[in-house]
Write a protein that binds this DNA or RNA. Structure first.
Length: 883
RNA sequence: GCCGGGAUGGCGGAAUUGGUAGACGCGCCGGACUCAAAAUCCGGUACUGGUAACAGUGUGCGAGUUCGAGUCUCGCUCCCGGCACCA
């Protein structure tokens, strides 16, 4: 064992061992319990950032832990390689997207390998490989035949100057990011997948998967199942017009309807606009701005009277019909009955345009709530219907039933379940994506590309400058022949949403080399993913699409599984402090690495200076690592400086995985310090005279457990308590930070034990015991930290006298007999305030505990001369004396 | 705007089922070693008062439930994530 810990040497040694022994190659083995651990694969943006390192360190710790527990672990890695940044880079740097992407993959793969993650690289692929996306095209053609994939018109962000479709992130304050032109919503034909057909299953299955409640709640709300009724309102004096159909979850409030509102692109509004300039102008205005919900929902609620009247089917009342920008064509019927007294958005609109507000629900009997619907909507469902003809006096459920029944009997409406979720639009008017495998023929219409012509390969040489869809401009690509009639035809020039690729990559990892099928039987061995790890930002979209796609895969007979991810861990993002200098109104940010921070005597940061020339800087807030704030930290630099283990330990021990992680340069140095110390402690221990290492193993040179003195028993107790805690933290709680802290404590405990032994002195016999209990504690630490800092543990495990590599070692087990204590400490409170600690026998009964508590000197100061009203004894925890 | 989450010493965080708030670490202070510095090791460190024992205060803000609240309930504030074409 080297005298000093040198991360480069140690890490090269461990990685060489793993490579030579092919430690991470994995095969299906039905005789062993499998564990599929998957971290979300990265977009190859150029360099790994700390967020990636964190994500992959978490996955690696779980994988290595499960392996130590005897599972057959699959941990693969690949590349989410299609996407917008490659096209932007192509335009900026004149590099073809394919080349740029391949170069980035090469760089990032090298960085991942240096970090020592236990991936089976044999299964690696990039989603831009034709061998991958051909199977995406293959399934799409089947979905097209089944009608699950269909084409209809929908809105996109249109930049009228660049004449191109913009992504939502390319629309900034309602303008195109390059041209600066005001963005419009424009309708174009697009491909969709019928995810709404699966809405109920997507909702119900959430109850059966082990995901964070926050994610499940977000998905439930996103699906937005709501039970209501559709109601037809006749339009007064216009016998030629169809009745106006609305959807509402609150038919019980229909007597409070004071206006109707339709979406700007509702057929009724469009029709009126033909003869009404004011309405036409309003509808035109509604088309301004982007398509994102955030943008639409934050615009001022505005509307325009259509001049028509609807007739309330329940009482014949004539109600004005408006067109309003807050009603969306994509939800329900694109029209609503507005009840301002009992709906907040309707209320705001009514107040703005001076429309009447009429209360028809009152709080339940016995409620002292004061309701004034003129000043605010009252939206409670628990009230009683009032002023509503024969329905007055009913509660929500009875009224809903009665009205739904009346509507159905009189053919004026139907019960209806609606979803906020809408079908998945998968078309993109972009180049760097998977081509849609459809051909448009004048005589045969839309025709799927036959299997034998797949994949439809994305051409390499393409002109990305200028507007429009790049593929559409490529004559060689577009012009083809119809697979049915052989006549001239045009290829579809859209590519798929990149969420399509990330919706099934986890399945492909099971059989990445399958040449004749999308998936083979190996997928049934590995799926579902037992543990999925990724950023919380994917809580809704990616995870919903992947769940949906897995159901399609199942129905295509490719997998037995319908839910892809049994358990989910969502990791928080990585943030760092910012430093800046304001000069002539311009703010310049400095990277943390070039800044020295000074502290006062209390430890508070008081000033920051540049390391190079001592210029005074301002200390800014802690923010998400980004280029613009220059607060990013390059993991490669950190690995070069401290080694992979230090970086891994730092990201795992600093905060729990689902919380934000704040980067701190000095705390990283602290992680490095711990590794040096661990190395020294093991080295000092193993290099003591006498090479025989004593252990409490069966058959090993006997150390009689009964001969342990108090100090030795205490260290053994701490060792086994730590094993119990760390097993729970890593295996159940996923609290790696407290697991690492517990291991640090145990290492501190060894030092304390040795100091105690020095004080008491020792003879020959107790020296063996000393070495044995320390050996046991060190082995536990090395085993428990092996998943986090695998390189150093590989070397330390050998130094501790093992021939087997730690990668093949088993997780330590708890010796229950070591952690039995005969005395425990109890806290004593008087009126809820802590006054003393008492030590009692572990099996002491209540009267004994009470007596010990009430006789304690400090407790007596607070209860003397007072009435003891109650004494609460919580076994093993606390005594509270109430006076 | 809507949905979800968060807030605890100077800082990151701990407190697992309502039961001793501040584990572990960073920083800071003091000491040892050294010609000196770095590294390392030892001790201290929520705040206020006190040599100390100890006492008072304290988990974003305001109420409430309880013998007891960081934890539960109600009402706010600020920050973060998502909102369907960023991935």
């Amino acid at each position: 064992m080297d005298e000093r810990y040198t991360p480069e040497r140690v890490e090269e040694q461990a990685q060489t061992y793993w490579d030579e022994h092919r430690s991470f190659d994995v095969r299906e083995d039905p005789s062993r319990e499998k564990f599929y651990c998957l971290s979300m694969f990265p977009y190859p943006s150029g360099k790994l950032h700390i967020g990636h390192v964190r994500n992959y360190a978490i996955g690696d710790v779980i994988s290595r832990y499960q392996r130590m527990r005897g599972r057959n672990v699959l941990q693969p890695m690949g590349w989410d390689a299609f996407g917008l940044p490659a096209e932007n880079a192509a335009i900026t740097n004149q590099v073809p997207p394919a080349l740029w992407t391949r170069k980035n993959i090469e760089d990032m793969k090298r960085q991942l390998r240096r970090l020592g993650f236990a991936y089976d690289w044999n299964r690696e692929f990039a989603t831009c490989d034709p061998d991958y996306y051909r199977w995406e095209q293959w399934l799409f053609t089947r979905l097209f035949e089944q009608g699950i994939a269909y084409r209809r018109e929908s809105e996109v962000n249109w930049d009228p100057v660049d004449e191109t479709v913009l992504a939502n992130e390319q629309v900034i304050d309602g303008r195109g990011w390059r041209s600066g032109a005001l963005v419009e919503r424009r309708r174009i034909p697009q491909w969709f997948l019928r995810i709404t057909d699966y809405a109920d299953e997507l909702l119900d299955e959430l109850d059966n998967i082990d995901w964070p409640d926050a994610v499940k709640t977000m998905q439930r709300n996103w699906i937005g199942r709501s039970v209501g009724t559709e109601i037809d309102f006749d339009i007064a004096d216009e016998p030629d017009l169809d009745p106006l159909r609305v959807f509402t979850t609150r038919p019980d409030t229909i007597y409070g309807t004071t206006f109707m509102a339709v979406a700007a692109d509702h057929p009724l509004a469009v029709k009126v606009a033909k003869s009404d300039d004011k309405v036409a102008a309003f509808i035109d205005e509604c088309r301004r701005g982007g398509t994102s919900e955030a943008e639409i929902e934050t615009v001022d609620k505005r509307g325009c009277d259509l001049g028509l009247r609807a007739i309330n089917p329940f009482n014949g009342e004539r109600i004005p019909i408006w067109v309003a920008n807050f009603v969306l064509m994509g939800y329900g019927t694109g029209a609503i009955m507005a009840v301002p007294a009992h709906d907040e958005r309707d209320h705001e609109f009514a107040r703005r345009y001076g429309l009447p507000i009429r209360q028809v629900i009152s709080p339940p009997k016995g409620s002292d709530e004061i309701v004034d619907v003129q000043s605010a909507a009252w939206t409670g469902k628990e009230g009683i219907v009032i002023d509503s003809g024969g329905y007055s006096g009913l509660g929500f459920d009875e009224c809903f039933e009665a009205m739904a029944k009346w509507l159905e009997e009189n053919d004026r409406g139907v019960r209806r379940v609606n979803y906020r979720l809408h079908d998945w639009g998968v078309s993109r008017q972009r180049y760097w994506g998977c081509p849609v495998p459809i051909v448009h023929c004048e005589s045969c219409g839309m025709v799927k590309v036959p299997d034998e012509q797949l994949p439809v390969v994305l051409p390499d040489d393409v002109d990305l400058s200028g507007g429009g869809s790049p593929l559409a401009k490529l004559k060689e690509f577009v012009d083809t022949t119809c697979p049915i009639c052989g006549g001239p035809a045009r290829r579809d020039t859209d590519t798929f949403d990149t969420f399509m690729e990330s919706s099934w990559y986890f399945a492909r990892f099971c059989c990445a080399d399958a040449h004749s099928a999308k998936l083979d039987e190996r997928a049934d061995y590995w799926l579902p993913v037992d543990q999925y790890i990724g950023g919380i930002e994917h809580a809704i979209l990616h995870l919903m699409y992947a769940r949906f796609y897995q159901k399609l895969i199942n129905e295509a007979g490719l997998s037995r599984v319908r839910e892809p991810f049994s358990s989910l861990l969502t990791q928080g993002m990585v943030v760092a402090e910012t430093f800046y200098l304001e000069e002539e109104g311009k703010i310049r940010y400095y990277a943390p690495a070039e800044v020295d921070v000074e502290h006062d005597a209390r430890g508070r940061s008081v000033s920051a200076r540049t390391r190079s020339d001592g210029k005074a800087l301002s200390i800014g807030p802690v923010e998400k690592m980004s280029k613009s704030k220059n607060n990013g930290v390059d993991p490669e630099d950190m690995v070069a400086r401290y080694g992979a283990d230090t970086v891994r330990l730092y990201v795992m021990e600093t905060s729990p995985p689902d919380q934000m992680l704040e980067w701190s340069g000095s705390a990283v140095a602290g992680a490095a310090r711990f590794l040096r110390r661990l190395w020294q402690v093991v080295r000092t221990h193993t290099e003591q005279e006498g090479s025989t290492l004593l252990r409490f193993e069966d058959g090993a040179p006997g150390i009689d457990l009964g001969s342990l003195d108090e100090n030795a028993r205490f260290l053994r107790c701490r060792t086994h308590e730590t094993i119990a805690k760390v097993s729970d933290d890593v295996g159940r709680r996923y609290k790696f930070n407290t697991a690492c802290a517990a291991c640090r404590e145990l290492l501190n405990e060894i030092a304390t034990y040795e100091a105690r032994c020095e004080r008491t002195g020792s003879d020959e016999g107790s020296r063996d015991i000393r070495r044995a209990v320390i050996q046991e504690a060190l082995e536990a630490i090395v085993l428990m930290l092996a998943p986090v800092i695998p390189h150093i543990c590989h070397v330390l495990w050998q130094a501790l006298g093992h021939r087997e590599a730690v990668i093949d070692a088993a997780w330590p087990t708890v010796d229950e007999s070591a952690i039995v204590r005969d005395e425990i400490d109890l806290a004593v409170q008087v009126n809820g305030k802590l006054r003393a600690q008492i030590r009692v026998a572990a099996d002491a009964d209540r009267p004994t505990i009470e007596a010990a508590a009430t006789h304690n000197a400090n407790v007596l100061r607070f209860i003397e001369g007072k009435d003891v009203k109650r004494v609460i004894v919580v076994p093993g925890k606390i005594v509270n004396i109430v006076v």
